[in-house]
């Protein structure tokens, strides 16, 4: 069995889950801190801020999803399949879109959501718009996820 191929595939899965997860945790933490400040003054806005805080969390899930797709693909749960270095490299590259876009878009989305907290602090009735702005950021994570999945599908083992 060629170890290098497996290692590269593992690296791809680790990057996808790891980087996107880092991005999401930073993003969620940013929103959480701003929200905590607001809630100290106005506990009634808890529900609204919770929605905003959840927004940057999805990138981590997308990353995890791609990681699992890789795991299934190479049979990491159960018996490992043979993966050539070339295939391993292809898997690693396929993971990069969601890993990188996940990392940066989650942080960016966290900032946008934090700004929306400022918005609902003053105009709670504008929650809908406050959700939309950060949700725009996520589009690119979604596109990256699709790209990663399509690329992974393209790797034949």
């Amino acid at each position: 069995m060629d170890i290098l191929g497996i290692v590269l595939a593992f690296a791809g899965a680790a990057l996808a889950a790891g980087l996107a997860g880092i991005g999401s945790s930073i993003g969620v933490s940013i929103v959480g801190q701003v929200a905590a400040g607001l809630i100290t003054e106005e506990p009634g806005k808890f529900g609204q801020t919770l929605i905003l805080q959840a927004l940057p969390g999805t990138q981590g899930i997308y990353g995890l999803l791609v990681a699992f797709l890789v795991i299934f693909k190479i049979g990491a749960i159960g018996t490992l399949k043979a993966v050539t270095p070339g295939q391993g490299m292809a898997i690693l590259l396929a993971c990069l879109p969601i890993a990188l876009v996940g990392l940066f878009s989650a942080i960016a989305q966290g900032q946008a959501a934090a700004a929306s907290i400022g918005l609902i602090a003053r105009r709670p009735e504008e929650l809908g718009k406050g959700i939309i702005y950060p949700a725009f950021v996520e589009t690119y994570a979604v596109l990256a996820l699709i790209a990663s999945i399509l690329l992974l599908q393209g790797v034949a083992l």
């Binding site: 999805t58 999803l65 699992f68 797709l69 749960i77 996520e138 979604v142 596109l143 996820l145 699709i146």
Partner: peptide
Amino acid sequence: LLSYLRLLALGLATGGIAVVVNQ
């Protein structure tokens, strides 16, 4: 139009993680 691909992505995420939980 591409934006509607999120329906696919979200469905995949739910299904994928659910399968993984079971595994």
